[in-house]
Every structure is written in C-alpha cells, then in structure tokens.
Design a protein around this nucleic acid. Sequence first.
DNA 1: TAAATAACCTAGAGGTATTAGGCAAACGTA
DNA 2: TACGTTTGCCTAATACCTCTAGGTTATTTA
Lengths: 189, 189
Amino acid sequence: MARVGLNAERLTRAGAELADEVGFDKVTVSALARRFGVKDASLYSHVRNSQDLKTRIALLALEELADRVAAALAGRAGKDALAAFANAYRDYAREHPGRYAAAQLELDYEAARNSAAVRHSRMTRAILRGYDLAEPDETDAVRLLGSTFHGYVTLERAGSFQHTPRTAEDTWSRILDALDALLRTWPTA
Amino acid sequence: MARVGLNAERLTRAGAELADEVGFDKVTVSALARRFGVKDASLYSHVRNSQDLKTRIALLALEELADRVAAALAGRAGKDALAAFANAYRDYAREHPGRYAAAQLELDYEAARNSAAVRHSRMTRAILRGYDLAEPDETDAVRLLGSTFHGYVTLERAGSFQHTPRTAEDTWSRILDALDALLRTWPTA
DNA sequence: TAAATAACCTAGAGGTATTAGGCAAACGTA
DNA sequence: TACGTTTGCCTAATACCTCTAGGTTATTTA
C-alpha cells in the first residue's frame, strides 16, 4: 500500500489548517485521517491520542504567535511597541481563528513551562520597559495587557461588537491610546 | 415505567450543575440522561438536540449572571459600582466555572438579541454614567471593560497567573484602581 | 540481501448523537 | 369510571468518533 509519509509534525500542521477551516473543536482524529486518505487507526502511530494532537496544535500556534510578536516588536519601544504587540496578537487571531482557539487550550504545568507561553510573557514585560514600572506594578500591568488583548480578540471574534455602528477597528485603536496613557500614569498604590 | 418528570427546564438546570462539576465541554446528552437514570433518547422529547441543550444552559447562565450583577450594582455609583460589577462577574466565574464557560457560547444573532446579554451591556453602560463619557468614548469604554474583565477571568481560570508570587487577588484590585483612574481621565482623541 | 523497523491496515469494542416507532402512564372528558 | 388522547420514556438502529490489538508490507540498515 502506498505510504503517505505521515509524521507528528505533518499531522500537527494539517490539524492547524483544519482548525482554521472548520474550528478547533471540530478537529478530530477521523477528520484528519480522512484528509490524508488513511484510516483513523493509522494516526495513532504518530500521536498518542486526540488530546495529544490538540496539544501539539496548541503548541504550534503559541510558537507561531510568539514569532510574529517578536518580529513585530523588533526595534520598537513605547507606544509603538505596545501597538505592534497588540496588533500582531489581534491579526493572528483574525487570520487563524482555529489556531488562536488552540492556543487557548489549557496546558498542564509541565507543557506550559516548556511552551512559547514563556516567550509571550517575556515579550509583554519587554514592552513595559518603556513605561518605567516597578514590581509588583509591572506584573499587574502584564496581566492587564494580557487580559485586555485576549478578552478583546475573543469578544470580537464572538461577534459581540457587531451590535453598534462603532467599528471594532476604531475602538481597538482608542483602547491602545487609553492603555498607553494608563501605563504612563500608572496610579500608585 | 416510572416517569422521572423531565422537562426542558430541569434538564437545563441539571446540565448547568453538570457543567460546573465536570466542565461545560463534557456536558453531553448521554451524561445528562445517566444522571436522571433514563435513556439518551428520552431527552429528545424535551430538547431538540445537544446544541439546543447547550444553548439553554448558556442562556440560563447569562440570566443568572445578569441577576447577580444587577443586585451588586444596586445603589452604587462611580468606582464603587465598577468594583461591584467586576467582582460580581469574577465571583460568578469562580463559583460556576461551567456555567461561565457556557455563557461564552457563541449565540446566533436572534438568540443573543433575546438573551440577558442585552442586560449586560446596559448595565456596563450604567456604570459609566459615573464617569461622564460622550459617545463614541462610552462604547469604547464598554468594550474595554468587557474585554478586560472577561479576559482576566478567563486567564485566571486557565491558571495563567500562577507562575509568579503576586496573587491574582492583588492584581485584580490594582487593575480596578487603574481602570477607575483611566475612566476618570479618558484621553481625548 | 536478510533482518529490523516503521507505516499503514483490518477488526472490534465502546462512547455519543439522533431518528423512528412503540407502549404505557397520566390526563381530560363524557 | 371508562375511554380516548397526549405524552413521557423505551427499544432498536444508524452513524460518527476514539482507541487498542494484532497483522502485513514497504523501507531502511547492517
């Protein structure tokens, strides 16, 4: 029988594409096998199980996203860096909804520790260097930015901003202004 | 055969409990049938299908959450109202993780329009009355608050804030301070 | 080129979603 | 109270999806 040449990496990539096409929750071992023209059982030589496959897609998405953010951040500082970071994040979510959803998968401690999630938090901290915040304010600000960006992207994708004439685009840009202003005048405890 | 006395509402409530116990994504028709000691097929007289069941749970959660927020908001204004709103939101998510996840389900336009989601956005606007923002700033602020609170609660539940000694509690309270300050001095375009 | 390895297959068990059709309990009514 | 109707729950059956065990064959390597 002709061999297709499967391996964990090809499966992960194809799984990510599938996620963007039909939604991360609809990525199944069966659907992926179908896409390669092989039987379901054949995939189990390459990935441990369905959960393992999903985790791999999540890790791939985290890496890709971190790469993009890193590229966007290069050579920028202050509000410029803030906007570049935020836009890289939002654009990725819009271009790759399935992958973005995958990146939200809850990883266990060990997996998270070794994932690009670490790069993400380091890069967020890097942005804040332009704003001169001492600990624990910096940690609080990291969490604020992470929450706001993630929350915004999630709500936008869910269509929550479609009920008023104000575009998601315009609000986004004003929110970046507002966060920049906030970081420059971070209230002391 | 003894009748258990099922109906859509009891199923929805039990489904919500199940969601809190085992996670919203693990709420299945089978699991719910098991819980009532009946066959899977029996549930289909009361809910159209699995999707319908999940939507009902989502709508229930939205109502409950709106009720809580409304109660928390009563008689408060300004930062007091902001904190009450935010805490009601976060507390609900912590007490009812499954229901909170359900409330995030993407509803179609029609369902959203008739759901408590409308009350939510009205209440968010009510908070902002204490801050004197004109349109479109008010809409932008509504979106900022929604994004930040939702994002924070989601990331906290995912364990994203467990990797540093700073508690999620402390950061939360500082973020409320920061948002309050930001709303009071919202930057003009 | 024979042995070892790896890639894919068949078979099958078990779980979930859903439809169709049946029987019996509960209810309304004469 | 008996009778018909409604409706709650059941059985049966189809269709996917997940995953394991064990086999066959293509490819690699000694």
